[in-house]
C-alpha cells in the first residue's frame, strides 16, 4: 500500500471517530441541557463523516488500486495526489474550527476562515478529479 494511501486511510479513520463523537455531542445537547450554540456543529458532523471519512477513504483506495496511468507514472501525478490530501485536510480542519466559531461570533476573521476552507476543499476535489480521470480505463 503506497504511503499516501496509508496517510489517507489513517486520516479517514480519525475523522470517522471525530464525526461519530461529534454526533454524540449533538445528541447529548438536549438531554443534558448543553449550550444551544453546540447545534452549530451539525454541518461539521455531516462533513467530517462524508468528506473526512467516506470521501477521503475513497481517495486513498483509488490512488492505490485503480488501473495504472502509465509505466512511468503508474499512479498519475504523485505531487498532485499529495496536494489533494493536504488541501482536503486543511480545508476540512479549517471548517471544523471556523464553522462553530462563525456561528458564535458572526463576521470578521472566522468568516474569512470559512471562505479559505471552501476554496481549499474545492481545489482538493478539482485536483483529485484531474489526477484520477486518466486512470479510469
Amino acid at each position: 500500500m503506497p504511503t499516501l494511501t496509508r496517510w489517507s486511510i489513517k486520516s479517514a479513520l480519525i475523522y470517522f471517530i471525530a464525526a461519530l463523537t461529534t454526533g454524540v455531542v449533538l445528541a447529548a445537547r438536549p438531554v443534558f441541557d448543553l449550550p444551544p450554540a453546540l447545534a452549530a456543529l451539525s454541518p461539521v458532523y455531516f462533513h467530517l463523516l462524508m468528506v473526512g471519512w467516506i470521501t477521503q477513504l475513497i481517495f486513498g483506495i483509488v490512488y492505490w488500486m485503480f488501473p495504472k496511468y502509465s509505466r512511468e507514472k503508474p499512479r498519475g501525478g504523485e505531487r498532485l495526489a499529495w496536494t489533494t490530501y493536504v488541501l482536503l485536510n486543511m480545508g476540512l480542519i479549517l471548517r471544523a474550527i471556523g464553522e462553530p466559531m462563525q456561528a458564535a461570533q458572526p463576521g470578521g476573521a472566522w468568516g474569512w476562515l470559512l471562505a479559505v476552507s471552501a476554496m481549499l476543499q474545492w481545489l482538493a476535489g478539482l485536483a483529485f478529479v484531474a489526477n484520477t480521470w486518466g486512470r479510469v480505463k
Binding site: T55, R95, G98, E99, Q102, W110, G111, W112, L113, L114, A115, S117, A118, M119, Q121, W122, A124, G125, L126, F128, V129
Partner: peptide, 17 residues
C-alpha cells in the same frame, strides 16, 4: 463530485462572507 464540491464551496463561501 466536482459539481457537488463546487456547490458546497459556494455555500460555505457565502456562509463565511
Amino acid at each position: 463530485l466536482l459539481l457537488g464540491f463546487t456547490f458546497g464551496g459556494l455555500m460555505l463561501l457565502n456562509k463565511g462572507t
